[in-house]
Design a binder for these strands. Sequence first.
DNA 1: GAGCTGTACTTGCAGCCGCAAGTAGTTTGG
DNA 2: CCAAACTACTTGCGGCTGCAAGTACAGCTC
Lengths: 150, 150
Amino acid sequence: MIPNLTDAELRAWQALLHAHHDVTSKLEMELREEHGLSLGDYDVLLRLARAPGRRLRMTDLATRVMMSPSGLTRVVDRLVLDGLVRRERFDGDARVMLAQLTERGRSVLRRAARTHLRGIREHYTGRLNLAQLRNVTSALETITGPHEPH
Amino acid sequence: MIPNLTDAELRAWQALLHAHHDVTSKLEMELREEHGLSLGDYDVLLRLARAPGRRLRMTDLATRVMMSPSGLTRVVDRLVLDGLVRRERFDGDARVMLAQLTERGRSVLRRAARTHLRGIREHYTGRLNLAQLRNVTSALETITGPHEPH
DNA sequence: GAGCTGTACTTGCAGCCGCAAGTAGTTTGG
DNA sequence: CCAAACTACTTGCGGCTGCAAGTACAGCTC
């Protein structure tokens, strides 16, 4: 009845926590210092940039960035204040709000992407060889179920 | 100059974010509902339980649970209010505070551990075969550098 | 077409966190 | 010794987050 995890299982758990903490806190700090963006901000901008017309419904955006609807509302509030995102109405359903990436948002994102992608490689993927990279990805995707690239 | 990450690298990054989010949010919810503890609370109790004399200096504890000193102060505040932890002075240096696990803390931890360990297996390690488990662990430990079990 | 149910988003609120500043105590250098 | 520098912890503050409730709209049913 008492689930005695093996040492291997406990180490795997600690490793996940530690790796996530280390990598995200470094990336967060770099992004914040060099571009004034949080990881959450960056993620929102990125999803919008990838979407057709560079706009998404709030609900869809919230799902993609793994955030609650209310949490997303505040993030978008801030991005609108900074002029990186615009809110638009959706023809055909007046309840829906679209978040639309502005030109300024695009250019901020482009610059931030250099920092971010460099950081991912420096703090994460660059420390692994190709086999490790594949193994990590496939194992972590097994846990959550595979994702479309969104 | 622009670091073009490969698709494999981007997937690895998404997988880390997604897996961490999924697993921790499930574990957090279970622990909260069944025992009124957050993951952070649990981690603090666990580190204390493992320490000699079931007590640690605030600074050492903060390092182990990957939390800022101020953050740890509040967590311990709450645990003291709940009677799970006691604050003690350290003979020989009056600046130091020891967090000491109480008997009540021990028993709450023991009960919570069942939920938590079951959850880790159910949502994480149990979804991987032994090879995947070893691969994930070794790769993630490569990223952060290996840890002592503390 | 009036109400009932459901959906999309926002707001009120409270919890958690970290940084910077504050307090208290210790160590070091002259 | 005693002042300056350092260390351990706590507090003030502000930012970020999610849940539950609120608002506005859509769609369904009779």
